[in-house]
């Protein structure tokens, strides 16, 4: 059985280490906040100007002045600090955030990421994604392996890029890949979802990769 969204998030949560400052993207990455491993204490960064983000508020305690980057109501906790957007992005660009877990539309064999637009179809924008991938030392992308039967792990991205050679780890519903642009091919299959075969991943992955399964 491939991993479901929660299981993808749980696998991503294993990348978090005690003491990390962590930025989570919107979608599956948001679920990671509920799956922090026991004994691991992290601070969540929200790019609209908050570090130390608490859970959703109880009904009736929502505050319009307290939201996350997905514009959802959240809460503060004892470690919380607030700051302006320039400082918030200084934290990212300056390499002070340890890890970011983001959604993806396509990842290339070299670790290029496309996750901000589908030209002509989607009017959204990159928001803070380009700054995150430019500045955060470890980038984990979580996404469905395929979209409408098309592999999302490709030799070259066809969608507009968010960043070039920025992805370090890809976690899909089928498998986990490491990316090291210094190698050729850069992708290494290191883990399969339970019950998923290496053959199935091979069949559903356009990009070249090496297998290094334990």
């Amino acid at each position: 059985m491939p991993w479901n969204r929660e299981q993808i998030a749980a696998r991503a949560a294993q990348e978090l280490k005690d003491g990390f400052y962590v930025n989570l993207g919107i979608g599956i990455p948001t679920l990671v906040a509920n799956m922090i491993p026991e004994g691991v204490s992290i601070q969540l960064h929200s790019e609209n100007g908050m570090l130390g983000m608490g859970p959703f508020p109880y009904a009736g305690e929502e505050d319009a002045d307290l939201i996350n980057a997905g514009k959802e109501t959240v809460t503060k906790i004892p470690t919380t600090s607030f700051f302006d957007s320039a400082m918030s992005f200084g934290m990212m660009r300056g390499g002070h955030i340890d890890i970011s877990i983001l959604g993806g539309l396509q990842v290339s064999e070299k670790g290029d990421l496309a996750n901000w637009t589908i030209p002509g179809k989607m009017v959204k924008g990159m928001g803070g994604a380009m700054d995150l991938v430019a500045g955060v030392p470890r980038i984990v992308v979580v996404m469905e392996h395929e979209a409408k039967g098309q592999s999302r792990i490709v030799n070259e991205c066809t969608l507009p890029l968010t960043g070039r050679q920025v992805v370090d780890l890809i976690i899909t519903d089928l498998a986990v890949f490491e990316v090291d642009p210094a190698r050729t091919p850069s992708l290494k299959l290191i883990e399969l979802a339970p019950g998923v075969s290496a053959g199935e991943v091979r069949e559903k992955t356009d990009a070249a990769y090496v297998e290094a399964l334990n």
Binding site: P55, F56, P57, Y58, A59, E61, E62, A64, D65, I67, G70, K71, E72, T73, V74
Partner: peptide, 12 residues
């Protein structure tokens, strides 16, 4: 008046 764009809550 402050509108909330996405009201997300948890249950007690």
């Amino acid at each position: 008046y402050k509108h909330i764009e996405k009201r997300t809550v948890r249950q007690r």
